[in-house]
């Protein structure tokens, strides 16, 4: 058996197209991430609106309620956890599909992280825009605060966007790390992740206690803009993003 000639490989498709393919792989089916979430927003918001209506009718009008009665609402945070789920899905099922199509892990990972960041940014835009409507209509005529509740009520729109986008991105990146650990090491990977997570939490609490820093942490949180505080998620996101790639780089798509 003699090998006479080796084929000359043409260059790879341009990097831009490869990454774009990895991004649009996730929106080939636009329903679950581009369309469905807005219906979920509408449903949860509608439910809250109905509850506010019932309460204010029961109270005989909004003027009989405390001014901050409808200020505390966490309904909008579902979308942050939805991002975790999307990240997990992207790194497991869709990862195997992408490798089956001949994508490289690197192209797939970069494209997918870009896509997740895009999702977080997009959802945050939606929230910020709706928050503006909420403010303009004096809380949908009921003094309700759904899209910018609690301490976010008076935050400028761009800060609200930044806060939701950054936190969403961080959660998606944490989801990415969990999922890549699962894909690469299965159950052992998950035990490791949650074990490490618990250790980090306890160690942080312990060091804050030992250094008697709880007070200064509290001062920091109350005296700084939410946007400044949220910026601390960016290095976490970056770290998780790099970690996810390091794990996925040698993962294999075994079922």
């Amino acid at each position: 058996m003699t090998v006479v000639a080796l084929p000359t490989a043409p260059p790879a498709p341009p990097i831009g197209r490869r990454l774009w393919n990895a991004v649009r792989l996730h929106v080939a089916n636009p329903w679950p991430t581009l369309i469905l979430p807005w219906f979920i927003f509408a449903a949860i918001f509608g439910l809250n609106l109905a509850i506010w209506q019932i309460i204010s009718i029961a109270a005989g009008g909004t003027q009989n309620l405390d001014a901050d009665a409808f200020d505390y609402n966490g309904g909008v945070t579902w979308v942050l956890f939805f991002l975790v789920a999307m990240a997990v899905q992207a790194m497991s099922l869709t990862f195997r599909f992408a490798l089956g199509l001949g994508m490289t892990r690197r192209d797939y990972y970069v494209g997918t992280v870009a896509y997740l960041a895009g999702l977080a940014a997009m959802y945050a835009v939606g929230i910020a825009v709706l928050a503006q409507v909420e403010r303009a209509t004096d809380g949908w005529g009921l003094g309700g605060r759904f899209f910018a509740p609690w301490f976010l009520a008076d935050l400028p729109a761009w800060q609200l966007w930044y806060l939701n986008a950054a936190v969403g991105l961080m959660l998606a990146m944490i989801g990415t790390v969990v999922a890549t650990m699962w894909v690469r090491w299965k159950a052992l990977g998950l035990y490791t992740f949650f074990g490490a997570f618990a250790v980090i939490l306890v160690a942080t609490g312990w060091s804050l206690t030992v250094s008697e820093s709880w007070g200064s942490l509290g001062r920091y949180l109350t005296t700084h803009e939410p946007a400044a505080i949220v910026s601390w998620t960016l290095p976490v996101s970056l770290l998780c993003g790099l970690l996810g790639f390091a794990i996925l780089r040698r993962a294999t798509p075994r079922a």
Binding site: A9, L25, F97
Partner: peptide, 24 residues
């Protein structure tokens, strides 16, 4: 391994292929 130049010229169809959730 991780070589887009050659993997992009390859198609691997396997029985056990999984698809993203909700894919038609």
């Amino acid at each position: 391994l991780e070589n887009a130049a050659v993997l992009s010229r390859t198609c691997f169809i396997k029985e056990s292929q999984t698809y993203p959730d909700g894919f038609k």
